[in-house]
C-alpha cells in the first residue's frame, strides 16, 4: 500500500539489548534487529511471550537504552523519552491522584501549553474516546476499559507522531477490546486522512487483533525479527475481511510462527502463496 517515497519515521539499525540476571548470567533479549517503518504505518508486533517485543518497544519509547545499535525516530537519533513519541502501557498507567481531564492534559502541561489551550485539546480527545461525561471523575471510579480510553486520549492529546502500545487491550474483555480497537483506528485515521496518520507500533498476542488493525505485521521470536508481513486488506475491516483467503493465509502463517500450527500441509501451501 505504502509507496516507497514515504518518509521513514522509525529506523532501527542492528539494535541489541542484553540483560544481566541476578545470578550474573546475561540474557540476550534483543539480538540484531534492523527495520524501517514509514510515516503513518500501523505496525503490529507479534510473538510468543518473552520474545523481546515489549523490550524493543520500551527502547523505541526511550525508557530502555539499547546495548548496541541505533534507533532513529523522525530523522533524529533518540536519547530518552521524547514528546514525538507516546506510549500506552499494558498495565493501568492513569495517575489515580489526578482527575480524568488532568490526566489527559498531563503531557501538554509538561510541555508548558497554556491552561485554557490544553484544556480544550484534552476535551476534544476525551470526547473522541467517548468519555466527555467523566471529565472530572477520579480514575478509581472508572472501569478498566474506560481507563484505557483515558490512556489513549492522553497520548493522542500529547500530539506524538509515533505511538507505541504495549499489549494495551490484553487484560480487557472481548467486547471492550473490540470497542477500543475501533476507538484507536478512528483516532489514527484523524481528520486529515492518510497524510495526517500517526505511525503506530502495537504489540499484541492476539492474531486476530493484529489482522484487523495492521498494515504490516512483524513477527518476533527469541529476540529476532523472524517475519515481516504486509496486510493489504481494505479498511474498515469487518468479520468478513478476516475470512478472505489472503487473510486466512496470513493467519496460518502467524499461527505457524507462534507454534500453534505445524508448518505442514495446507497451512504452509497457503502461507507461501501469500
Amino acid at each position: 500500500m505504502s509507496p516507497p517515497v514515504d518518509r521513514r519515521m522509525i529506523e532501527l539499525a542492528n539494535v541489541q539489548r542484553t540483560f544481566k540476571r541476578g545470578d550474573g548470567t546475561t540474557v540476550q533479549a534483543i539480538s540484531d534487529v534492523s527495520l524501517t517503518v514509514p510515516e503513518g504505518e500501523f505496525v503490529c508486533m507479534i510473538g510468543t511471550s518473552g520474545c523481546g517485543k515489549s523490550t524493543l518497544l520500551s527502547m523505541v519509547a526511550g525508557l530502555l537504552e539499547p546495548s548496541d545499535g541505533s534507533i532513529v525516530v523522525d530523522g533524529r537519533e533518540i536519547d530518552g523519552p521524547g514528546r514525538e513519541r507516546g506510549m500506552v502501557f499494558q498495565k493501568d498507567s492513569v495517575f489515580p491522584w489526578m482527575r480524568v481531564i488532568d490526566n489527559v492534559e498531563y503531557g501538554l502541561k509538561c510541555r508548558g501549553v497554556p491552561a485554557s489551550e490544553r484544556r480544550a485539546i484534552a476535551r476534544t480527545y476525551l470526547q473522541r474516546v467517548g468519555l466527555a461525561h467523566v471529565e472530572t471523575a477520579w480514575p478509581r471510579e472508572l472501569s478498566g476499559g474506560m481507563l484505557k480510553r483515558v490512556a489513549i486520549a492522553t497520548v493522542f492529546a500529547n500530539g506524538g507522531k509515533v505511538l507505541m502500545l504495549d499489549e494495551p487491550f490484553g487484560a480487557l474483555d472481548y467486547v471492550t477490546r473490540h470497542q477500543l480497537q475501533d476507538v484507536l483506528l478512528d483516532l489514527w485515521d484523524e481528520t486529515g486522512g492518510k497524510a495526517a496518520r500517526r505511525t503506530i507500533l502495537f504489540v499484541t498476542h492476539d492474531v486476530d487483533e493484529a489482522l484487523s488493525l495492521a498494515d504490516r505485521i512483524l513477527v518476533f521470536g527469541t529476540g529476532r525479527l523472524v517475519d515481516d508481513l504486509r496486510v493489504d486488506a481494505p479498511r474498515p475491516r469487518d468479520t468478513d475481511s478476516l475470512l478472505q483467503p489472503d487473510m486466512v493465509a496470513i493467519k496460518h502463517r502467524l499461527l505457524g510462527h507462534l507454534g500453534l500450527e505445524r508448518p505442514t500441509g495446507r497451512a504452509v501451501a497457503r502461507g507461501t502463496a501469500a
Binding site: 523519552p81 507516546g86 506510549m87 493501568d92 498507567s93 503531557g107 509538561c110 492522553t154
Partner: peptide, 18 residues
C-alpha cells in the same frame, strides 16, 4: 511507587522537577 507511573510520566515528557 509502581514504576508504571514514573514510566508514564517520563514518556509524556515530564521533567525531573515535574
Amino acid at each position: 511507587i509502581p514504576p508504571i507511573y514514573l514510566d508514564n510520566a517520563r514518556a509524556l515528557g515530564a521533567s525531573q522537577t515535574m
